[in-house]
Simulated assay, not measured.
Amino acid sequence: MIKMSINLGERSYPIYIATNYADIGKSIASARLSGKMVLITDTNVDMHQADECINALKESGYDVHKYVIAAGEENKNLDTVNEIYRYLVKQKLERNSVLIALGGGVVGDITGFVAATFLRGINFVQVPTTLIAQADSSVGGKVGVDFEGSKNIIGAFYQPRLVYINVNSLKTLPKREVQAGLAEVVKHGIIKDRDFFDYVEYNLNKIFEFKEDVLQFTARANCSIKGSVVEEDEREGGLRAILNFGHTIGHAVESVSGFQLLHGECVSIGMVGAFKMAQHLGMVDAKESDRVIGLLERIGLPTGIKGMDVDKVFAQMYHDKKIKNNKLVFILPKRIGEVLQISIDDTALIKEVLQELAQ
């Protein structure tokens, strides 16, 4: 088992990268968590992962209650949060209680938000089971829900007490979920680590074959890249904004699609849009753009929005959190491995890029 840490002073926490759930109880004990435990998962993960995880916890002497929510981004809302609150009140949870998020980004975001707000804050543990959650959303403390069609518009910064990654949980995923998760993996290479981008490009087939050593290296690299950013800028005052690469357009596409497209699929489209915009601004070489688009296509991710209403996407972008002084904030690439944050008020340029994505 690999152990690494996110260093945030009194909010620091470990990340464990394993190949099963055998050590999850020992990991929780190391964090000195001992209150009542509720494992929150969704209907998909419950079928494939919950029993194994709960049995491992019971073997370590923990009494764990389970609460299952309906799977899907459309359920990441305050109604679901309220249902969980009612359950926790019924279970008489206390300040030292622990919520365990077993699932993908939706489960992690909801559970973290509930933990941040219930009794003014209780402990929670991230156990991500999707590639997108293992690569990105389980680390860093961003938690929240969607509201009236706007993505993650209600939320908080609230760090978990630990993250436990079982890379073999990825074997239970549909291929489309793995492909979507790889968008965030590619993103990390683009924003901060060209060598990691090269690694993913070279080892893509091994990732799809679920080679344990490759999955563990990938998880460690992702957590290291994201962790280094979060350690420097926990609450997105500056550097952390680079993690939003591909998200300014991506979140709008996700909302306009009615969440029929997966988050990673939308980030893929957003990254292509960012490269197109950077090319228009003379920031990035066309060869770099072609290489990124080529990798996304090899993965099987969408790279455009053909058939989608461009005007709706444009309008939705202005309902996003990434706006400053009525200007959209984009993270744009200079090259693979380096990006910049830029505010853009040239609406004609933004619409031109969206039109190109729609072709």
Rank of each mutant, 00 (worst) to 15 (best):
A252V: 06
R240K: 10
G189L: 09
K171E: 13
S224G: 12
G227C: 15
L239D: 03
I207S: 01
E254P: 06
A241H: 12
Q216G: 09
C223Y: 02
V229Q: 01
I190T: 02
N166S: 04
S257L: 07
E232F: 10
N203Q: 06
K171G: 07
H188Q: 13
F208Y: 04
Y202K: 15
K192F: 12
Y164D: 00
H247K: 06
N203K: 15
E254Q: 09
V167S: 03
R176A: 14
Y199A: 09
L173G: 07
E236P: 04
D195M: 13
G250S: 05
A180K: 06
E201N: 12
A221Q: 14
G246M: 02
K211R: 14
R240W: 04
K226N: 08
G238Y: 07
A219E: 08
I191W: 00
N244R: 00
R220W: 14
C223K: 02
S169K: 05
L170D: 08
N222L: 11
V167W: 03
C223E: 12
S228A: 14
R220F: 15
F208H: 04
P174M: 04
I225Y: 11
D213G: 12
L170T: 07
V163E: 00
V256A: 02
F210D: 11
L239C: 02
N166K: 08
S169P: 09
A219C: 15
H251C: 10
I249E: 02
V185Y: 00
C223M: 13
G181Y: 00
E254A: 14
R161T: 01
S255C: 03
T248R: 12
A241N: 06
E254M: 06
K226G: 01
E254I: 05
F197W: 03
G227P: 08
A183G: 10
N168G: 10
G250H: 03
A180L: 11
G181A: 01
V178G: 08
D233M: 08
F196A: 10
L162C: 10
A252N: 11
K211N: 15
S228M: 05
T248S: 12
S169T: 13
N244P: 01
S228P: 07
F217T: 15
L173Q: 07
I165K: 03
Y199L: 11
L173I: 06
S255D: 01
I207D: 00
F197V: 05
K211Y: 13
F197A: 11
L204K: 03
G246C: 08
T248Q: 14
A241M: 14
S169F: 04
Y202P: 01
T172Y: 09
E201Y: 13
E184A: 06
F245Q: 00
C223I: 08
E254L: 09
V186E: 01
E201V: 07
F210Y: 15
I190Y: 01
N168H: 11
I249Y: 15
F245T: 00
G238T: 12
E201W: 08
L239Q: 05
L204G: 06
V253N: 05
T248C: 07
D193I: 07
K171R: 15
